[in-house]
C-alpha cells in the first residue's frame, strides 16, 4: 500500500467521522417523528458506509487476491438477491447452479490470472450458449426464452459487470504501473458519492419526481445535483488517475449514470437487507 492510498483512506475516514458526529447531533436535536425517521435512516446509512469502507480498506491493504475475493462475494450476494426476486422455476435449478458454482468462480479466477481475452467473453458468449443447453436438457420447454434470458441477464449484471471493477487491477497503463488500486478507489468513490449526493440533493431540493412508479424518492433535482457534484469531485481526484482533470471529469460523469439507474431499481422487498430482528 502506498502513501497516496493511505491519504485517500484517511480522507474518507475523516469525512465519515464528520458525518457520524453530525448524525449524532441531529439525532439528539430532533423532536418530530418524520424528521426522526429520516435521521435514523441517515445514521443507518452512515454505519453501512463505515462498514463498507472498512471492508475495502482491509481488502486494499491485504492485496489483489483478497480484493478479488471480496468482489466475487459481492457478485454472489447480488446474484442471490437478483434471483430471489426473479421468477425462476424449479426446472431452472441446473442453470442457476451453473451460474453460481461454475461461472462466478471461473470469472473471478480469470481476473486473478489476468486472462483478459477469455474474461471478456466467458459470460456473454460461453455462459450465454451453455445456459440454454442446461435448461433444455432438463426437458422443460415452457417459457423457454424468458427463463433463459432472466438468468443470462442476471449473470451479465451481477457477475460480468461487477467483475470489471477488480479487473481494473490488471490494466497495464504506461506511466501508471501497479496503480490499479487507485483506479479502483476512483471508481468506488465516484459511485458511492454519486449515490450519496443524489440522496442529499433529493432530500434538500427534490421537487419533481422522475419515475414515481419505479422509485418514489428519486427526483430530477437529486439526479442532476448528485451527478454534477460527483463529476466535480471526480475531476478533483484527477491526481490519483492517469487522466487530466477534464478527462477525469468525463470519466466520473460517465460512471454516475448507470449508478443512478441501478439505485432506482432496488427491490421493493428490501426487507431482506434489514437487520435481523427476533431470530439470531
Amino acid at each position: 500500500m502506498n502513501q497516496t492510498m493511505l491519504i485517500l483512506l484517511g480522507g474518507v475516514a475523516v469525512l465519515l467521522a464528520i458525518a457520524s458526529v453530525i448524525g449524532f447531533v441531529l439525532s439528539r436535536r430532533t423532536t418530530s417523528d418524520g424528521a426522526g425517521a429520516t435521521i435514523d435512516n441517515l445514521n443507518a446509512r452512515i454505519r453501512a458506509w463505515w462498514l463498507m469502507v472498512a471492508m475495502f480498506a482491509i481488502a486494499f491493504v491485504t492485496g489483489k487476491l483478497v480484493t478479488i475475493a471480496l468482489f466475487a462475494l459481492t457478485s454472489f450476494y447480488c446474484l442471490r438477491e437478483f434471483i430471489s426476486i426473479t421468477p425462476t422455476r424449479a426446472e431452472d435449478h441446473r442453470s442457476l447452479a451453473a451460474a453460481f458454482y461454475l461461472f462466478i468462480p471461473l470469472q473471478y479466477w480469470l481476473v486473478a490470472t489476468g486472462w483478459t481475452t477469455l474474461f471478456t467473453i466467458l459470460i456473454p458468449v460461453w455462459a450465454f450458449l451453455l445456459l440454454p443447453v442446461l435448461a433444455v436438457v432438463r426437458g422443460e420447454t415452457e417459457d423457454f426464452l424468458p427463463r433463459t434470458a432472466r438468468i443470462q441477464w442476471a449473470l451479465m449484471l451481477t457477475v460480468f459487470c461487477v467483475s470489471h471493477a477488480p479487473a481494473l487491477l490488471n490494466l497495464k497503463i504506461p506511466g501508471f504501473e501497479r496503480q490499479g488500486f487507485l483506479l479502483l478507489f476512483f471508481l468506488i468513490a465516484v459511485v458511492q458519492l454519486s449515490d450519496v449526493l443524489q440522496y442529499v440533493f433529493g432530500k434538500l431540493l427534490g421537487q419533481r419526481k422522475i419515475a414515481p412508479r419505479v422509485s418514489p424518492s428519486k427526483t430530477w433535482e437529486g439526479l442532476i445535483g448528485g451527478a454534477l457534484t460527483s463529476t466535480l469531485i471526480g475531476s478533483a481526484l484527477w491526481w490519483i488517475t492517469p487522466f487530466s482533470p477534464l478527462q477525469a471529469a468525463a470519466m466520473a460523469f460517465a460512471i454516475c449514470w448507470p449508478v443512478s439507474s441501478a439505485a432506482w431499481y432496488s427491490p421493493p422487498s428490501s426487507v431482506r437487507w434489514a437487520p435481523r430482528t427476533g431470530a439470531r
Binding site: 438477491e81 434471483i83 425462476t88 435449478h93 447452479a97 453460481f100
Partner: peptide
C-alpha cells in the same frame, strides 16, 4: 422449491424467507 428442488445435489443460492 426452486432453491433446492427434489433430486438436486446442491441448493441454488436464493434468499428464502
Amino acid at each position: 422449491a426452486r432453491a433446492y428442488p427434489k433430486g438436486a445435489i446442491l441448493p441454488a443460492p436464493i434468499s428464502c424467507i
